[in-house]
């Protein structure tokens, strides 16, 4: 288990849409191990038990939005912040600014280029 985790970094995907979670997993491929959450509460529950290398976070979630979740996450865990890529169907300049302002490391709008998302996640984990 330890060996497997060391080999394959753990990534949390938080998106309420099953097809999009499938897509993100398919895009990022077999190099990573995946945790999934449908909303911010589930994501918090996952973070209580696991320590993923990165989070891919949707903005429009039922209940608390991705931005609210991210803001709270950054306030709660100031040390060793987890890299967060925010994905959003909104893809406006305002959303990108809101995401980056809340502490996102990168912003990728839907529909995204598979290569772009893969590159962004790889770069963040490498750093």
């Amino acid at each position: 288990m330890m060996a497997a985790q060391a080999l394959r970094p753990l990534i949390l995907i938080c998106d309420d849409e099953l097809p999009l979670r499938e897509l993100i997993k398919a895009v990022l491929g077999d190099r990573y191990e995946y945790l999934e959450a449908e909303d911010a509460d589930q994501a918090d529950a996952v973070l209580d038990r696991f320590d993923p290398e990165a989070i891919v976070l949707d903005v429009m979630l039922p209940g608390r939005s991705g931005i609210e979740f991210l803001t709270e996450l950054r306030e709660r865990r100031r040390e060793r912040p987890i890299p967060v890529v925010v994905v959003s169907a909104w893809q406006s300049q305002q959303d990108a600014q809101a995401a980056l302002g809340a502490g996102a490391n990168a912003f990728v709008g839907k529909p995204f280029d598979p290569k772009e998302l893969a590159d962004v996640v790889e770069t963040l984990i490498a750093a």
Partner: peptide, 11 residues
């Protein structure tokens, strides 16, 4: 529209 479209285009 964007959510399903994102899936279709992505896949």
């Amino acid at each position: 529209v964007r959510t399903p479209l994102a899936s279709v285009l992505g896949f």
